[in-house]
Simulated scan of single mutants.
Amino acid sequence: MVSAFRSNTIYSTVADPEVDLASTWEAWVTEMQMQYAMFKITTNPEGTPLELMINRKLRHTTATGPRYCTNVGNWTRAFFLAVVCREQQRYRDLCEIPVDLLREAGEAKGTRYNPSSYHWAAALQDFVLHRPGLAENLTAAMELSTPERAEISDPEYLNKITFPPMNTFLRLVQRDSDRYNQALAQGLALHGDYWTTGDRINDIKGMFSLPLLALACLGYDTAEQDPDFHFDVESGYLPKHLLENSWYGEFPT
């Protein structure tokens, strides 16, 4: 079910790359709600009654306890979707989920994730919740995502897809506008290079980089609030009305 909403988000954005239409924004919001709901259902004690807004309706269900879907890959997607949709309470709630739970649930059936993924999730949580482990976790994530240290993933994917969001995030944390803009622009260029090479050129998953889009939204919002920080990046990989938060408040989320 969640994958269907993910596909709808991608196809809607392919047809409406700047997210000019409210229907495209709604596709993003609905997927965000579904991803968030999945974690509410699988991280609360089994049997806990829940009320969740999904696709303009309040849904009533009960928690199941952890499942395989409670994994770090789904967590990062849920987090970045909430950031793009500017749902601060939702991404704060997601940051309260212990990384150890993501590891235990996601690897319970033998699936393995690159150890950098867990440090990356922890660094994002540390940033949002103002915890002291941010520098340590981000450093570990960046080191473990290099081809020499990584246990999983091919070198090209690590260099062009995995590492650039971490580098962009580092510059955002440092409040270094020039290096942040440089890192973001470089990351988007590498994303484009990866997804326009060989057979990947026809894969619509390359339409945008969700991590870089979310970090762009954070940078854009930071520039709106901090006169010493500036946002200068323009790219076809950054849907204009998502970046500028044009649709927020259009309907209940």
Rank of each mutant, 00 (worst) to 15 (best):
F127L: 11
C217V: 15
D226T: 12
I10R: 14
L52Q: 06
P239L: 09
T76S: 07
T196K: 12
L158S: 01
H241F: 11
L50K: 10
S116W: 01
S235H: 15
S209G: 02
Y157F: 13
G198Q: 03
I41Q: 04
V128N: 01
R92T: 08
M166V: 00
I97G: 00
N137R: 12
W120Y: 14
E148L: 00
P155D: 01
W195C: 00
L134Q: 02
H130V: 11
E224S: 09
T139I: 09
M34H: 12
L50A: 05
G219C: 02
A121G: 03
K160R: 15
E107F: 03
H119P: 00
N74P: 03
I201D: 04
A223T: 05
V84L: 07
F39D: 04
P239S: 10
N114M: 02
H230W: 14
T70R: 06
G206R: 07
G187L: 01
Y248M: 02
N114F: 00
L213A: 07
L215G: 01
L188S: 02
Q33I: 10
A141S: 02
N137Q: 11
P132W: 08
T42I: 07
T61D: 07
F39N: 09
L210H: 05
R92E: 03
P239Q: 10
D193R: 15
A37M: 08
G236P: 07
L124K: 10
E151A: 10
V19T: 13
R179W: 09
E104H: 12
R149G: 00
E234Y: 10
L58Q: 12
M32W: 12
Q174E: 15
T111D: 11
Y11W: 14
N181Q: 08
K109W: 11
P227S: 04
R67P: 04
A141I: 00
D154Y: 09
F5R: 14
A123N: 04
P227F: 06
